[in-house]
C-alpha cells in the first residue's frame, strides 16, 4: 500500500489482516478448542500468556530465593541453629557465601554445611552474640563445638 496522505497512514492498522491474525494463531498453535481456532478468543489468551511470561521471569527469581531459604532453614534445624544466626555468624567471620551456594551445600554437601554451621556458632559464641529470634522446639542435634579449634582464626582481624 502506498499512502499519499498522512491521514491515511495514521488510519492504517498495521499489516494485512491475514498476517496480523497469523502472528497470534502461531502463538496459540498448541492451545485447544476455540482458544486455538477462534481469533477473538485466541488473541486474549495469547496476550495474557505473554504478560504472564514477562512477569514470571521476575517471580522465578523470587521463588528460587524462597526455595533456597527453605533449604537453609531445614538444614539449620538439623544442627539446632537458626538460619538467622547462621548468616550472622558467617557474616561476622567474613565468609561471603550467598543463599544459592549455602542451600547447595545444605542439600548436596551436608558435611561442609555442618562445618559452616559450627564455624558460625563458634564465631557468635566468641563475640558473645545472643540470637534473639523466636526459636522453635529444637529438633536437631546440638553442634559439638568442643572440637572446633578455630579460636585464633576467628579472632584474627582482617
Amino acid at each position: 500500500m502506498v499512502f499519499l496522505t498522512v491521514a491515511n497512514w495514521i488510519r492504517a492498522r498495521g499489516p494485512d489482516e491475514f498476517w496480523r491474525k497469523r502472528r497470534i494463531f502461531r502463538l496459540a498453535a498448541h492451545y485447544t478448542g476455540r482458544r486455538r481456532n477462534c481469533y477473538s478468543v485466541a488473541v486474549r489468551n495469547v496476550h495474557r500468556a505473554l504478560a504472564y511470561a514477562t512477569k514470571a521471569r521476575k517471580l522465578k527469581k523470587e521463588d528460587m530465593k524462597v526455595l533456597w531459604d527453605t533449604r537453609i532453614t531445614a538444614a539449620c534445624e538439623q544442627h539446632n541453629i537458626t538460619a538467622f544466626s547462621l548468616r550472622e555468624g558467617l557474616g561476622r567471620a567474613d565468609i561471603m557465601l550467598d543463599r544459592k551456594s549455602l542451600s547447595d551445600l545444605a542439600a548436596w554437601e551436608p558435611k561442609t554445611f555442618h562445618c559452616l554451621a559450627a564455624v558460625a556458632k563458634e564465631k557468635l559464641n566468641l563475640d558473645n552474640f545472643i540470637d534473639g529470634t523466636d526459636k522453635k522446639e529444637p529438633t536437631g542435634i546440638n553442634l559439638n563445638l568442643k572440637d572446633v579449634m578455630l579460636e585464633a582464626w576467628l579472632k584474627e582481624k582482617k
Binding site: 561442609t112 555442618h114 553442634l143 559439638n144 568442643k146 578455630l150 582464626w153
Partner: peptide, 15 residues
C-alpha cells in the same frame, strides 16, 4: 585427633 584449622571441623566422636 579431632579438630580443624581452616579445614573441615571434625565433630563426631569423643576427642
Amino acid at each position: 585427633g579431632q579438630g580443624g584449622i581452616l579445614s573441615r571441623l571434625i565433630t563426631q566422636n569423643a576427642p
